[in-house]
Design a protein around this nucleic acid. Structure first.
Lengths: 217, 217
DNA sequence: TGATATTGACTGACAAGTCAATCAAAATAA
DNA sequence: TTATTTTGATTGACTTGTCAGTCAATATCA
């Protein structure tokens, strides 16, 4: 019978499933440890202890520390992209509703945890010296930006606002990144509800006929 | 005769001035190296090479790597605070002019370089495990936030806007942080002029009678 | 002014410690 | 048994911090 996983306990999983589950378990442990200790102070032993395993396993499943990080980033990037695409799929078709979906997606509890946000920052600040990380994520970002800009352009044109689409989408992205930073590093981060209000205040100011501070009209 | 300093050359300075100049030289080298290599990969030898000195000297002037980082952060924090206080001192007394001064200060070429912004991020993402860094900077941040919120409240009250001061100041800060992030990590960061426009677009949306995308009315 | 003594910034080799990666042996499942 | 996963001791590379010695800049003296 498969034993249930709890942090800092030895776990034995059915062999067939083991490989993928172990890798995910180690990736989860990497995210937690990275958030708690930062990039510089993190050792493979830390990750292994967090996962309740021995450090040799990390190099068994991933071939190197670098590859562990690379796959962790890839996991976060995929999860992020998947998330906003899901939100978009469930949103109404109007441009305002799609913009609302995109900013709500960024605050989804699944991806917007302090730990994961700190991981993003850790990867960004190390990305200068490790081009791998840029490749891992760069592409998705461009797709997201293009989509946001197009949707803003659509709203501006159809509803007759006088904004420049590129400027507006830049501002929305900056707002989102800024809110994320507060959630990640502020000693007293504002609750998710207030973070969403901050984003909606920006949208309400830009598009007063389509948004209020409470959200989509 | 004192020899002139150039990177990667041994230099002998007049002794009286040497201590402070060397420390600053090493702090500058730390900022450059931190931005180029990130926190994890940075060694004392890297910093020394960047400064054109031997690594033993780093521990001679600073007592440890930790202290080098701590003083580097302190330098950045002081420079940042000094800068916005200068801008505020030169600004007109109206609340709108003061808000404009604060956001222009954040984009001053002296403090808003890609290297320095990347350093801030590096320190933030390591701050979890090193409480020293929080202490070094936490206080100034509170003062800045309080000032911004008060100034927003003043503008809102005197000009009869219908915003909530705390929400507005949160949004302005988030915008500023988001723009900084773009300048620090985007592969194609927008020029400073466009970054300023993004911030002014936010202010123009919030306070249309006091700001346009071009700036203060 | 020129010669000598003193100071203290600076170097580079080295000791001590840390960590990623390896691998042989053990445990476990098929 | 055979195949696979897991462990943990070991290795080798690398980094920080130290320290004895060097040498330029200054102070002192003739």
């Amino acid at each position: 019978m498969p034993k249930v996983a709890t942090s800092a306990k030895v776990i034995h999983l059915p062999r067939k499933a083991s490989r993928e589950l172990r890798k995910q378990q180690l990736i989860d442990a990497t995210i937690e440890t990275l958030a708690r200790k930062g990039y510089a102070a993190l050792t493979l032993t830390d990750v292994a202890v967090e996962a309740g395993l021995s450090h040799g396993l990390v190099n068994f499943h991933f071939q190197s520390k670098e590859k562990l990080f690379s796959e962790t980033l890839q996991f976060l990037a995929t999860e992020y992209q998947q998330n906003w695409q899901d939100y978009l799929g469930r949103a109404a078709h109007s441009p305002a509703a799609r913009i609302d979906a995109l900013i709500r997606a960024d605050l989804d509890p699944k991806i917007c945890t302090a730990a994961k946000l700190r991981c993003w920052t850790a990867f960004w600040s190390e990305s200068q010296s490790r081009p791998i990380y840029q490749k891992e994520y760069g592409g998705n970002d461009d797709a997201y930006n293009a989509l946001l800009t197009d949707t803003c352009a659509e709203l501006i044109t159809t509803a007759g606002y006088a904004h420049e689409p590129l400027q507006v989408s830049r501002m929305i992205r900056a707002l989102g990144d800024g809110v994320w930073q507060d959630l990640a590093f502020s000693e007293t981060p504002c609750p998710r509800r207030e973070a969403l209000q901050t984003l909606h205040l920006g949208l309400a100011s830009l598009f007063p006929r389509h948004f209020t501070v409470k959200g989509l009209v």
